[in-house]
Write a protein that binds this DNA or RNA. Structure first.
Length: 539
RNA sequence: GUGAGCGUAGCUCAGCUGGUAGAGCAUCGGUCUGUGGCACCGAGGGUCGUGGGUUCAAAUCCCAUCGCUCACCCCA
C-alpha cells in the first residue's frame, strides 16, 4: 500500500462519525445521464472530429446556440403536442422578482384557518396582489394567454375575498390560492430537447436570410429530454445535426444531405445500415389544402372501419383518433398484415409533392446512395413536409435510428421569420453512432502514450523535465513520473499504460551525454544524441 | 405512465435446502537500485442496494422501498 493511501486510511473517521452532521452518502449521476470515461472519450472525440470533417467538406459551417431557450420557442416548434411539452421537457422558472416569489410562497402555503382568515384577506393577500401588479407592469411575469387568465382569476378572487366573510370565504380562499400557485412568475426556460428550433431562431434573429445563398449550418452538443431511459436513449444525449435554410427547396439539397450522412457512416466503417425514405406530403396553407391532411382523413376513415379497427391493439385504436399516421409504424406483429393493406401516402401525394419525391429518388440514384422506400416512415409534427428519412441499424436495439431528418418548409415563418424560407435538416445521435462503431469493431481511436520517461537520480531529474518538455513541444504525448521510480517499476508502468517508447535517464546517460531509448513492442534499445531523439520517436 | 429481469469487492461472478463473506481479473507493495509483458509471495478493498419482519442465527426466507437494465407508451 502506498504511503498516501495508508495515511488516508488512518485518518479516516470512524464510521459513526458524520462530518458536519451530514449523512454519508454515495452521489450518483442523475437518472438518464452518464459519465463517458477514457478510453471511450477518445472514440467520441474521433467521431466528432470525423463528423466535422465530413460535414465541413459539404461546406456546412458550425453554429453554436445556447443550451437553454425560452420554453415558448420549443413549445411552438413542437406544436400543441401536450405530452412532449408538459412531460418531456426540462423546464423551469427563472425569477426576476424575489419579493413576489416570497409573497406568493406565503399565499400558496397559508393554511385555511378561521381565526386567521381576516388577517389573510386584509394583510397577506393584498400585499401579494400589490406586488403582483408592480411585477406585471414591469413585465416580470410571463405574458402568455394562460398566465394572463390566471392573473385575472387572482384579481376576481381578491375581490371576492374582500366581499366575503369568514363563513363563506373558503371558496374564494381556495381559488385565490390555487391561482397564485399556478402563476408563472419570471421566465419559463427549457433545456433544449433538439436544436432545429434554436437554429431557426438564430437564423431569424440575425437576419441570416440576407447572407448570400442557402445557409448551411451544423451543430454539435447535448440535448435533454425527460423520457424513461432505455438502450440508446438517455435524458442527456448528444446530437450532431445540420440544417439548410434558404429560398430553395430543390430535391438536390435533400439528396446531398442524405449522401453526406452515408459518407459519414462509411468513414465509421459501420456496415449494417438501411436508409429509409418517404414523402409525407404537404400541410394546409392559407392558399390551398395540403395533400397530407387529405390523406390523414382518408387513413382515419379506413381505420375506423369495424373490420379493420377490431384487428388493432388498444394502443393503435387510440392512435386512430389522436395520431393516425402513427398506426403506420406500430411494431405489433399481429397488426402488420392490416397495416400492409392500408392506403400509402405516396399514392395520395399532390402533383407537386409527387414530383419532388420522384426527383429526390433520381438525385439519390445519381449519387449512388442505396435507399428503401418506406410508406411507414412518418413524422408527428405539422410543419414537417415532403422528404423524411431515417437511417437505422439492426445492432442498436429497439431505438434503432442512427439519424433522421426531414423537410420543414413552414417552420421559419411559424417562428416569426421571413416568408418563403424553406428548410431541411437532420440530427444524428452520437450515443448510438458510438455504439454502432464499437459494434462494427473497425475503428480504434485510442492514442497511446508516445514516450515514458524513466528517470533515476537527482542529476537525471532536471534532464528528464527538460527533455519531456522538448518532446511535448514537438507534439508527442509524454508521461513523466512525478516521483523517482526504480527502472523495473518504471518499465512495468510504461508497459501497463501502453507507452511505445521508454526514454531511460540514469547516471550513465548523464555521464556519457547520450540518451537511451527503448521500443517496448520489439524490445530494441538504442543509444543516440538528443538531435536524433525527435526523429526516432515518431508516432 | 406500464411491464419484465437484475442488485454480493473497481469489474465478471460463485456462495445448494438459513450457521461468522469467496474466486478470477484489476489495483498497490515485495522478490527486483539499470530494464516491462511472465512467475511467485503479500496487502488493501464488502455493514451482500436500503429499511423492516420471521429466527437462537438471514447474502440466503417474507414484506416494503430504492437503484440499474431492457421492452412498451412516446419519439421533436
Amino acid at each position: 500500500m502506498s504511503e498516501g493511501a495508508k495515511r488516508e486510511k488512518d485518518e479516516r473517521p470512524a464510521k459513526e462519525v458524520r462530518q458536519g452532521g451530514q449523512e454519508r452518502r454515495q452521489f450518483r449521476a442523475i437518472k438518464g445521464t452518464r459519465d463517458i470515461l477514457p478510453p471511450d472519450t477518445a472514440l467520441w472525440n474521433w467521431f466528432e472530429a470525423t463528423a466535422r470533417e465530413v460535414i465541413e467538406a459539404y461546406n456546412f459551417a458550425e453554429i453554436r446556440t445556447p443550451i437553454f431557450e425560452e420554453t415558448e420557442l420549443f413549445a411552438r416548434a413542437v406544436g400543441v403536442e401536450t405530452d412532449v411539452v408538459n412531460k418531456e421537457m426540462y423546464s423551469f422558472e427563472v425569477y426576476e422578482s424575489d419579493e413576489l416569489v416570497e409573497r406568493r410562497y406565503m399565499v400558496a402555503n397559508w393554511p385555511w384557518n378561521f381565526d386567521q382568515y381576516d388577517f389573510f384577506r386584509q394583510q397577506i393577500a393584498p400585499r401579494f396582489v400589490e406586488t403582483l401588479k408592480i411585477a406585471v407592469d414591469k413585465g416580470q411575469i410571463v405574458r402568455d394567454a394562460a398566465n394572463l387568465r390566471i392573473y385575472e382569476e387572482i384579481k376576481t378572487a381578491m375581490a371576492d375575498l374582500m366581499d366575503t366573510g369568514v363563513q363563506y370565504g373558503k371558496n374564494a380562499f381556495d381559488r385565490f390560492q390555487s391561482a397564485a400557485r399556478a402563476l408563472l412568475i419570471g421566465e419559463s426556460i427549457t433545456l433544449r430537447p433538439e436544436a432545429t428550433a434554436s437554429v431557426c431562431r438564430a437564423y431569424i434573429e440575425h437576419g441570416m436570410q440576407t447572407r448570400p445563398g442557402d445557409q448551411k449550418l451544423y451543430y454539435v452538443g447535448p440535448m435533454f429530454r425527460r423520457e424513461r431511459p432505455q438502450k440508446g436513449r438517455y435524458r442527456q444525449f448528444y446530437q450532431i445535426g445540420a440544417e439548410v435554410l434558404g429560398t430553395s427547396d430543390a430535391p438536390a439539397i435533400d439528396a446531398e444531405l442524405i449522401e453526406m450522412l452515408t459518407v459519414l457512416i462509411g468513414r465509421c466503417k459501420i456496415e449494417k445500415w438501411t436508409l429509409l425514405i418517404n414523402s409525407i406530403g404537404c400541410p394546409d396553407t392559407p392558399e390551398r389544402k395540403g395533400c397530407r391532411p387529405k390523406y390523414v382523413e382518408l387513413l382515419r376513415a379506413e381505420l375506423r372501419k369495424p373490420e379493420i379497427f377490431s384487428k388493432l391493439g388498444p394502443d393503435s385504436q387510440r392512435r386512430v383518433e389522436t395520431n393516425p399516421l402513427r398506426v403506420m409504424d406500430s411494431k405489433l406483429p399481429e397488426e402488420q398484415p392490416v397495416i400492409e393493406k392500408l392506403p400509402k401516402i405516396s399514392e395520395h401525394l399532390c402533383a407537386e409533392c409527387r414530383e419532388h419525391y420522384e426527383k429526390l429518388k433520381s438525385e439519390l440514384a445519381l449519387r449512388k446512395v442505396p435507399f428503401t422506400e418506406s410508406p411507414r416512415l412518418v413524422r408527428g409534427l405539422d410543419y414537417y413536409m415532403r422528404t423524411t428519412f431515417e437511417i437505422t441499424s439492426p445492432v442498436l436495439g429497439a431505438q434503432n435510428a442512427l439519424c433522421g431528418g426531414g423537410r420543414y418548409d413552414g417552420l421559419v415563418e411559424m417562428l416569426g421569420g421571413p416568408k418563403g424560407i424553406k428548410g431541411i435538416g437532420f440530427a444524428l445521435g452520437e450515443d448510438r453512432f458510438v455504439d454502432a462503431i464499437v459494434e462494427a469493431k473497425k475503428i480504434d481511436a485510442t492514442r497511446a502514450v508516445d514516450v515514458f520517461v524513466a528517470w533515476m537520480g537527482e542529476k537525471a531529474y532536471p534532464e528528464a523535465v527538460r527533455l519531456a518538455r522538448v518532446l511535448r513541444d514537438a507534439g508527442r504525448a509524454v508521461e513523466l513520473p512525478a516521483r523517482e521510480m526504480k527502472f523495473g517499476k518504471a518499465f512495468e508502468r510504461a508497459d501497463k499504460i501502453g507507452a511505445r517508447y521508454v526514454l531511460i535517464l540514469g547516471d550513465d546517460e548523464i555521464a556519457s551525454k547520450r540518451l537511451t531509448i527503448k521500443t517496448l513492442a520489439s524490445g530494441e534499445q538504442k543509444q543516440m544524441g538528443e538531435s536524433e531523439l525527435l526523429d526516432y520517436v515518431r508516432h
